[in-house]
Structures are given as C-alpha cells and as structure tokens.
Design a protein around this nucleic acid. Structure first.
Lengths: 193, 193
DNA sequence: ACTGTAACGGAGGCAACCCTCCGCTTCAAC
DNA sequence: GTTGAAGCGGAGGGTTGCCTCCGTTACAGT
C-alpha cells in the first residue's frame, strides 16, 4: 500500500466494490450523482440518480446507505482531484500558483450548488476533506503571503469561503464569474502602495 | 396617490387586503414566510409557513395563489426596504456611502439562502425589483467611480452579484462574513498606486 | 461446468407536501 | 341589529420521494 499524501484519498479508494458489475454500477452512480447534485443541489432525488445511472434504487441504497454517504463520496472525489491540482501548480510563481488553483476550484467544482452547505458539515469525511484542502491549498496561500503578495490579515479558511461563495453563485455567464473572481482576488492581493 | 420613487414600492403596497382580519393574516404570512425562507431557502414548506402564521393553508393560497407569488412579495418587501436605505446613506462620502449600503444589504437580507436563485428570475416583479435596486444603488456606485474610488472595469450588476454571493454563503460567524466582505470590497476599490 | 454468495431491481408501504373545495365564521355597510 | 359578501380553515385526493424487503440474476472460485 503506497503512502497517500492526503487523508481524503484513502476514503475515495476504500469504497469501490470488487466485483465487476458492482464496480461498474458504483462508478455510474457517482457520475449520475455528480450530474444531479450539480443540477439540483444536494436535495436531488435519489430515485432520479438511480434512473440516470441505469440501476435500481436498491443498488443505490446498497452502495450508499444514506443520502449523506452518496454526497460525501462525490464530494470527496472532487476534493481529491483538487488536491492533485495543487501539486501541479506548485512550481509556479507564488501568486500565480495560488490564483490558478483557486480558479480551478471555481471551474471544476461541479457540486457548486451543494458546496455551500457542505462547508458547515462536521462529519468525519467532511473534516478529512477540509484537512486535505488545507494541506493542499494552505501552503500555496502561505507562500504568497511570505512573498509579500497576499494580505496577512486573513486566513486560508476565509479565502476558501470567499471563493466558495463565488463558486456557488449564479452568474450571467462564465465571463462574469471570472471577472468577479478577479475583483475579489485583487482584494486579497497586497497593496503595492 | 403620492409619486413612488421606486417601481417596486407600488407592488408592495398593492397586495395588502382591506378587511381587518385579512390584513392581519396577510402580515402574519409575510412574516412567517420571511422566517421560513431564511431558514430553509425558497423551497420552504407552504404548510409550515401557514402553521407559523397561525392561519389555515387555504388562507395562504387565497393571498398567494402560488409559491412564487408569496416569495415575490417577501422579496419585494426586502428590496423596497433596501431602496430606502440607499436614500439614507446618500449624503455620506462616496466610498462610505456605497460600502455601508452594501453592508446593509448583506446584514439585512434575510432571504439569504433564496436570493441566489432570485437573481436569475425574469418575471415582471423580479425585473421591477432589479430595476429598483439599480435606481437605488447604481448612483452610489457611479459616484464612487467618478470620485476615483471604485474601479471602472466592472459594472453594478457584477458588484451586486459578488455581494449577493457573499450574502448567501455560510460563514463561521458574522465577523468572518464581514472580513470576507471587506476583502472583496477592497478588490473593488481603486488602487492608490 | 457447478455452485454458493454477492449483487441486482423494483414493488410497495410510508410520509411529506401540494393544492382544491366547500361549509362555517367574521366583518363592515347600512 | 341585520345581512350579504368576503374571508376562514382544514379535510382529502393526488403526487413525489424515501427506504425496505425479497425473489431473481450474475459473478468468480473450484
């Protein structure tokens, strides 16, 4: 067993069943749930998710005993992917690295509508997700702060929530979301007075 | 009939019934709906709202034939109040006036969780609300821009959506929301390079 | 190929919510 | 005080979603 850099990655790997048909259904359910949560938020109908995945409702419940289990699995997958991205951008200039990670956060996170609620969840898995996010993104922020590019009167959690708020908001189009994100990130940048 | 400065104010006044008991119930329903929308978002149960208001479900439906009618009435009331606030702050310094209005926006808007969805609604009432918001807040923003205090590469709509995003996001406490709002507004402020 | 077991699917009971309808109540105009 | 109309409440029928349960199906180890 290889060492996993982030707590959440173990969780992501541990759930998938071994049998071939079961693994296929598991993947289809995750994909369908991602879609449904993106469209309808965390309250999306479970029967609809099963239908999209082309499996019976019973199969959904066997894999994910509660709505929360399913949501957590989808969410953990996204967090895991974001952690990978943080590694990719780590070799860029401090401010560049931080902002391109945050932009990726906004663009990629398909559970936009649901992410806001997840911020307040205190279950084990969400705590692991948040810890992984901190491990992945925190250093990017601290590096920008030490380079004198990011303000030091706010913490990483403040930053993440700010970006999550913009992620979860409806805009006219992607260009508007991007503009607003740019403006907000300008507020994070240290003044070059 | 006195001239109403904002389109939305006429809408707000026109709905309330004349008979004493009916007017009381109408007010109770609006108050209960405000509460429920604040807690549960725009999908709050109508039967629960009627229960909170201490009236039968039939009374709710007589006053507001659809969920949308009810939500629109609550929302229009909040917009109307915000327009008043814009008048109150108009005599302050440009940047001060703008930001204190936006802070009031964040603090006061109790339909936080629902406001995000309302941004994309194209019904008559929501258009009137948005027009009133523009009439009330737009000048504050333009004044700050002309005073050289607010950046000119964004519009009022961009600003409102940014603030609405922060409004609708869950934070650990009010202090954190306020900090994040300050940071984001710093991004709106012109650099004093 | 055989077979035990893990996985499958969806019928069905339950709960919540939506909205209509109508017999009863309350107001206010005279 | 009378009275007609406006307003009231909640029972009830329909819909949707949740979750369990169990007869059937498909995999994988021998």
């Amino acid at each position: 067993m290889t060492a996993q850099p982030f707590p959440v990655s173990e969780i992501v790997a541990a759930q998938r069943p071994h049998r071939k048909d079961a693994a296929r259904n598991y993947d289809a359910l995750i994909a369908a749930a991602r879609e449904a949560f993106a469209e309808n938020g965390a309250e999306a109908s479970l029967e609809d998710i099963a239908r999209r995945a082309g499996v019976g409702i019973g199969t959904l419940y066997r894999n994910f005993p509660t709505r929360r289990h399913l949501f957590e699995s989808v969410y953990a997958g996204e967090v895991n992917d974001l952690c990978r991205v943080a590694e990719e951008v780590a070799d860029r200039e401090p401010w560049e690295a931080l902002t391109s990670w945050l932009r990726r956060f906004v663009d990629y996170t398909v559970t936009k509508r649901a992410i806001r609620e997840a911020m307040d969840d205190e279950s084990d898995i969400f705590l692991a997700c948040r810890e992984s996010m901190y491990q992945a993104g925190g250093p990017l922020f601290e590096r920008a702060q030490k380079a004198g590019e990011a303000r030091t009167d706010m913490g990483f959690d403040d930053l993440v929530r700010m970006v999550a708020g913009i992620t979860a908001t409806n805009f006219l189009d992607d260009a508007q979301r991007d503009l607003v994100l740019t403006v907000a990130l300008d507020g994070v940048r240290t003044r070059t007075v």
